[in-house]
């Protein structure tokens, strides 16, 4: 039993250390004011609802930014085990979570040299915002794969 306990303690230490090693700067947010761009497309009706609108924000994550601008962008988010989850943008709601259409987004960050197409980006609370970042929300049934 003692041997097992030592192995368990060792495993916890190793995993905690690895967790910090695997921390990625790709999605860390930039402090202070920044300019970000938002595009909103309804691919079901093939309409662009918002085209590269410019916003100024101090929010460090995309989730906080959406919370801050929820009135302007008509955003509704619900809590999930993966953080907040966007269900409505521009007051257009995803009503059938089983079959879609859903709100998905693409993310582009020139400062991080990072481009993630629709369906590739992680949850809104995991995406840190940097100056000149662009987010494209798409109401679609295509999950990106």
């Amino acid at each position: 039993m003692k041997k097992k306990l030592w192995f368990a303690i060792g495993a916890v230490i190793l995993v905690v250390a690895a967790f910090f090693i695997f921390q990625t700067d790709f999605f860390s947010g930039e402090k202070g004011e920044k300019e970000v761009f938002v595009t909103v497309k309804d691919e079901v009706k093939n309409v662009v609802l918002l085209e590269r609108a410019r916003f100024h924000t101090d929010a460090e994550t995309l989730g906080d930014f959406l919370e801050e601008k929820k009135e302007t962008l008509g955003v509704v988010m619900v809590d999930s085990e993966y953080g907040r989850f966007v269900t409505t943008v521009k007051n257009l709601a995803s009503t059938d979570m089983q079959n879609g259409p859903w709100w998905m987004y693409a993310y582009e960050s020139p400062s991080k040299n990072l481009t993630m197409e629709v369906g590739q980006a992680p949850g809104v609370d995991e995406v840190g915002l940097s100056d000149q970042d662009e987010v494209i929300f798409v109401f679609t049934q295509d999950m990106g794969f």
Partner: peptide, 12 residues
């Protein structure tokens, strides 16, 4: 960069 970011997030 996107691949690395995705892998690292998955590893966590």
């Amino acid at each position: 960069e996107a691949l690395l970011a995705r892998l690292l997030l998955g590893f966590q």
